[in-house]
Design a protein around this nucleic acid. Sequence first.
RNA 1: GACCCAACGAUGAUU
Length: 419
Amino acid sequence: KVTYAVMIEGCCRNRNVEKAYELYTQMKLQGIRPTVYNVNSLIQGFLKAGLWEKATKLFDEAVECGIANVFTYNNLIYWLCKVGKVNEACSVWEKMTNKGVTPSVVSYNNLILGHCRKGNMDVVSGLFSEMLERGLKANVVTYSIMIDGYFKKGETERALNMFDQMVGLGTSPSDFTFNTVLNGLCKVGRTSEARDMLKKFIEKGFTPICMTYNSIIDGFIKENAIDSALAVYREMCESGVSPNVVTYTSLIDGFCKSDNIDLALKMRNEMRSKGLELDVTAYSVLIDGFCKRRDMESARELFDELFEVGLSPNAIVYNSMISGFRNLSNMEAALALHKKMIDEGIPCDLGTYTTLIDGLLKEGKLLKASDLYGEMLGKGIVPDVITYTVLVHGLCNKGQLENARKVLDEMDKKDTAPN
RNA sequence: GACCCAACGAUGAUU
């Protein structure tokens, strides 16, 4: 039985779920009762392999025969939260408590994470107090998740309070926590503060990693403080931390957005000279840079290069290109790209349609624009304020006041506030 | 005894 357990686990780790499942059935055939451990590792294996159906089937079986434990439930709750199905995660949670399985700190952490990603911070604080009331002690992961959640929601003070609370209650922050706090400060435009804090953290024994510097570099980039960003980049290299593709992407993006395409390209070369290859995001930054400069020829070259190196552009890359052609009023090229997206099976998103509709309306091609709007709605894509603004503006400019009125009414029905 | 959780980069309108 031990042998089977070890083998099943090993197969799951090696992403060989098929083999693991084979062993599992073989074991059952030999009359050996599978343990929770076996089932748990199998479920996890299925989840990692994206075999959602098989995972839930096994999970339901485990629940039915009553061998499911906290770990079993946590596993599923985690994956549901990760893919944004927080409501389903909640029903698994209910099932768990109904079966008399007591949630652990990890259970709470998983659910809190799910709600943080959705931005439901009020639910999060409810769960947090519930957890404490039940006599569970929040751990460093709980705090880190919540700190990150508050920062991402823009509730900086709350985030910093959580950090103080954690320290005050005697939970030592981990390197993970430090990175979360630093990144959070950078994201809300307090990068210099983060840089100073980094020094203090280092004194407390924190070892910065590439990601730490990346957060600070990107923060300065977003504040348009390119020189500070470069200073941190040098500091990073000097302290022996190797920059990665994310570091360079931030810097390249900074140069592009401050209209310094030459320096951006220089950075790309520096990156390559260190043996790093561009990924899709890195390409997208450069492509967008050229598109914004209305240099569609260079953008196109990079777009082609992307294919040549064996990558395939995602919707973001296409959207940049489409937006670039739209700016040049070349809707023919823009629409050709839209067609290519569909041919290649790249899902168009709200941005794709908004840009296309914007361009078409500006050209006076109202029919084509409305076709695309219909196509978008047909795919279940819901318009947002920006889309509505595009429609109202475009229609008004073409004297279609009636239709613009209709759009405003539609907004009203959907409770979207005009800006 | 072994299984579960957290952190970094890119795209759309108006101004």
